[in-house]
């Protein structure tokens, strides 16, 4: 009997593992697709049926980061010989373009990527910081009309943001906030704030207020008690909230497209703009997308322990 049940258990485990592998494959396939495209030669990327085995190359990344000129006629042998290996690779790949000279001329991608980082990081810090303090206030003090205020804060999320895009754009234009980092930071902070307040209130409610009261009686101010006792206890919640806010800001497309075009443009509207006027540069777009996926993956990976505890907070806490 015991042997049978243990055999059943082993079979069950096997099925579970196979199911997990299958689901993981399904979820990873688009990521594999985009990542492999980023390393494909240009003509291989669009071949039908898709090529699985190919000689990977880094030219899409080179093209993503640097600029070069369209050649009107084939380069002279001297020019070709003087060009660095990756330029030769691009030229040999069948494209009539070449970067002449040794100074590297960067494309706009690094700048757009940096814009995305600045806007997302700053707006996440602001949204989580303000949200935590607001949530603390709601959680710990008797506030007149608390329920109404909290509902008001939540209600800012009930409208699809794009609905207000045009009025926002007009307002931003009169305040000279279009195409500025500050403009996007304000916008994303406002988007994330209500979410951050609600999420953080849940987390802070879970922290017994007796801890701070003990600190108050022990000679600390409310502010010191907040930083010494509440913040360390809320770290898990803060991490979870930060990941969600960061992802929202990082992936935001519509407002970034409307509000920015050059100086403060972020990566999401920039990458598709590279489709260009001629043939779509699928490999370059794929390379840009792969790099774009990395920060969120790294950030989530770093906070993974907090995140797991954070999203299952109410369930496993006594």
């Amino acid at each position: 009997m015991a042997a049978v049940s243990s055999r059943n258990q082993r079979f069950g485990r096997l099925v579970a593992i196979l199911a997990i592998i299958a689901v993981t494959l399904v979820f990873l396939s688009p990521i594999y697709w985009i990542a492999s495209t980023a390393f494909k030669p240009r003509n291989v990327a669009t071949s039908v049926p898709p090529t699985v085995l190919f000689q990977p190359e880094v030219t899409p990344f080179v093209k993503l980061f640097t600029k070069r000129v369209q050649l009107k006629q084939p380069p002279t042998p001297e020019v070709y010989a003087a060009a660095p290996w990756w330029e030769k690779a691009i030229y040999d790949g069948g494209e009539r373009i070449l970067k002449v000279g040794n100074d590297v001329q960067l494309s706009q991608y690094p700048n757009r990527f940096l814009n995305s980082l600045i806007v997302s990081v700053v707006s996440t810090i602001l949204a989580v910081g303000m949200g935590t303090i607001t949530a603390y206030g709601f959680s710990r003090f008797r506030i007149k009309g608390e329920a109404d205020l909290l509902f008001f804060i939540l209600s800012t999320r009930m409208l699809p943001p794009v609905v207000v895009a045009i009025p926002m754009f007009l307002m931003y234009r009169s305040f000279d906030l279009t195409d500025t980092h500050l403009g996007l930071i304000i916008l994303y902070t406002a988007f994330n704030l209500s979410f951050s307040v609600w999420l953080m209130k849940g987390f802070i409610d879970e922290i017994p207020k007796e801890y701070e009261e003990a600190a108050l009686v022990d000679g600390y101010t409310r502010m010191q008690a907040f930083f010494k006792i509440v913040l360390p206890e809320a770290a898990t919640g803060i991490a979870a909230t930060a990941v969600f806010c960061f992802i929202t800001a990082w992936n935001e497309y519509a407002f970034a497209l409307i509000m920015t075009n050059r100086r403060a443009q972020t990566a999401p509207p920039f990458i598709p703009s590279q489709i260009g006027s001629g043939l779509p540069e699928w490999t370059v777009i794929a390379a840009g997308t792969v790099l774009f996926l990395l920060p969120v993956a790294i950030f989530t990976f770093l906070l993974r322990n907090h995140l797991l505890r954070g999203v299952t907070f109410g369930a496993i806490r006594k």
């Binding site: 009261e213 009686v217 022990d218 360390p232």
Partner: peptide, 20 residues
């Protein structure tokens, strides 16, 4: 006066120790 200034000590039934 605030709690800090009163120089009183408080012992509670539970949650009275700082975690971590």
């Amino acid at each position: 006066w605030g709690p800090a200034e009163r120089d009183v000590a408080l012992v509670l039934q539970q949650y009275s120790l700082y975690p971590r």
